[in-house]
Simulated assay, not measured.
Amino acid sequence: MKIVVVGGTGLIGSKLVTKLTEHGHEAVAAAPGTGVDTLTGEGLAEVLVGASVVIDVSNSPSFERAAVLEFFETSTGNLLAAEAAAGVGHHVALSVVGTERMPDNDYFAAKIAQERLIEKSPIPYSLVHATQFFEFARGIADAATADGKVHIAPVLFQPVAGDEVARTVGRTAVGAPLNGRLEVAGPTRYRMDEFFRRALAAWGDPREVVTDPEARYFGSVPGERTLVPGEGAVLGRITYRDWLDRDAG
C-alpha cells in the first residue's frame, strides 16, 4: 500500500520509510525538503494521490508556546483536510507519553491540541504515544545543565530506542485504525536522576548529576509518573546500554 510519512526525512520518519519499504510498501517521505509543506499546504494534494495511510511524525522547529501551537494546529488541519479530499483511510500520529499529565508544558499542550483535531476528524486514526527517545538523552542533559551541573528530578523515566518507536508506529499504520491510542516505552524503568548518572558515566562525561525535585523538564516540573506509560504499553527490548554500544559507538 502507499503510505505517506510526513516528517519522513527526520529521525523517526526516515526509519519508518526504510522499514515500510523493506516490507513491500510504497513509503513516501513528505517534508519541506521533498516539496511538501504542511504549514502552507504546498505539495499535499499531489503526494496524497493514491495514499491509503498517512503517518505524521513531523515536529515543530520552535517549542515557544505560540509557535509550537500554531505549527501543530495549522499543519494538522491542513493535513487532515487534504487527506479527506484524497480519500485516505487511516491517519497515524506520533505523540508523547504524559501529554495530558503536564498540560502546563507548552509542547505538551500543543500536542494535546493536535490530538483533539485528529479525534474530531472523520478520518479513522491511531495515536502512538512514545516515551523519550534514547537519541535525545544528551540533549536533555544539556538542557538541564546549570553552572556545570545537570539538575534532574527524581521521577520515573522509561526511555526507548527510536528504532522501536518506528517499528511500533509502522505496525500500527498497516493495521486497522485504533480510533484511540497505544503507548510504547523502553524495557527498563529508572529514576530519572539515576538514569542520567549512569548515562553520563557511560559517555565519560564528568558533569555531576544533581537530584533536584524542582528541576524542570523542557519548562515544566514533572510528577512522579508523568513520563512513564500505563498498563498495556508496548515495551521495547533494546536497553540503553545495548543501544549505546550498537548505535553510538
Score class of each variant (00 low, 15 high):
Val228Pro: 06
His23Pro: 08
Tyr217Pro: 09
Phe72Glu: 01
Ala146Trp: 06
Leu48Asn: 10
Gly232Lys: 10
Ala27Asn: 10
Arg246Tyr: 02
Ala201Glu: 14
Ala130Met: 03
Leu44Tyr: 10
Val210Lys: 01
Phe196Thr: 03
Val184Ser: 05
Leu20Ala: 05
Val47Arg: 07
Ser126Thr: 13
Gln158Pro: 15
Ala51Gln: 09
Ile118Gln: 12
Glu70Thr: 14
Asp104Tyr: 07
Thr172Leu: 07
Ile12Asn: 10
Val17Leu: 00
Leu227Asn: 12
Gln114Tyr: 05
Phe136Gly: 01
Gly139Met: 09
Val47His: 08
Ala141Trp: 10
Val88Pro: 09
Ala185Met: 02
Arg181Lys: 09
Arg101Cys: 01
Ala141Asp: 11
Thr239Arg: 11
Gly236Asp: 12
Gln132Tyr: 05
Phe195Cys: 01
Thr226Val: 02
His23Asn: 15
Gly33Ala: 14
Ala141Val: 09
Arg101Tyr: 03
Glu119Tyr: 10
Ala146Leu: 07
Val234Gly: 02
Val228Cys: 03
Ala27Ile: 09
Lys2Gln: 14
Phe136Ser: 05
Ala51Pro: 13
Arg198Asn: 10
Phe157Glu: 08
Glu42Val: 13
Arg138Met: 04
Phe72His: 13
Ala202Gln: 12
Ala137Asp: 02
Gly180Thr: 05
Ala93Trp: 00
Glu194Leu: 00
Val54Glu: 11
Gly41Asp: 04
Met102Asp: 02
Thr226Asp: 03
Leu178Val: 04
Ser75Gln: 04
Ile140Lys: 09
Ala51Thr: 06
His151Trp: 04
Leu39Val: 14
Lys19Asn: 09
Glu64Trp: 01
Val221His: 13
Arg237Gln: 13
Leu182Ile: 14
Ala30Ile: 10
Thr34Ser: 14
Asp245Ile: 06
Asp193Phe: 02
Phe71Val: 07
Gly139His: 08
Ala176Met: 08
Pro124Gln: 15
Ala130His: 05
Ile152Tyr: 10
Ala31Val: 02
Phe63Asn: 10
Ile123Ala: 13
Lys15Ile: 06
Leu79Asp: 05
Pro229Thr: 13
Val165Phe: 03
Trp243Val: 00
Leu48Val: 07
Ile3Ser: 03
Leu235Asn: 04
Thr9His: 07
Leu244Gln: 12
Ser75Asp: 01
Ala67His: 03
Ser75Ile: 00
Ser121Arg: 10
Ile118Ser: 11
Asp193Trp: 05
Glu26Asp: 15
Asp104Ala: 14
Ala67Tyr: 01
Ile152Val: 15
Ala202Pro: 11
Ile12Lys: 09
Asp106His: 08
Asp242Thr: 13
Lys149Ser: 07
Ala166Val: 07
Asp245Ser: 09
Asn105Gly: 12
Arg167Pro: 00
Phe133Asn: 06
Arg65His: 07
Thr99Asn: 15
Pro32Trp: 13
Glu22Gln: 15
Ala146Asp: 10
Gly41Arg: 12
Glu73Asp: 08
Pro206Gln: 09
Glu231Ile: 08
Arg225Thr: 15
Arg198Leu: 02
Ala144Gly: 08
Ala141Met: 11
His23Leu: 12
Ala146Phe: 14
Leu244Met: 04
Phe157Ala: 08
Phe157Met: 07
Val53Ser: 12
Ile3Thr: 04
Arg241Tyr: 01
Gly50Met: 05
Ala161Val: 00
His151Ile: 06
Pro32Gln: 15
Asp205Cys: 05
Asp212Phe: 02
Arg246Ser: 11
Lys111Ile: 02
Glu22Ile: 06
Gln132Asp: 09
Ser121Phe: 02
Phe71Arg: 08
Ala27Tyr: 07
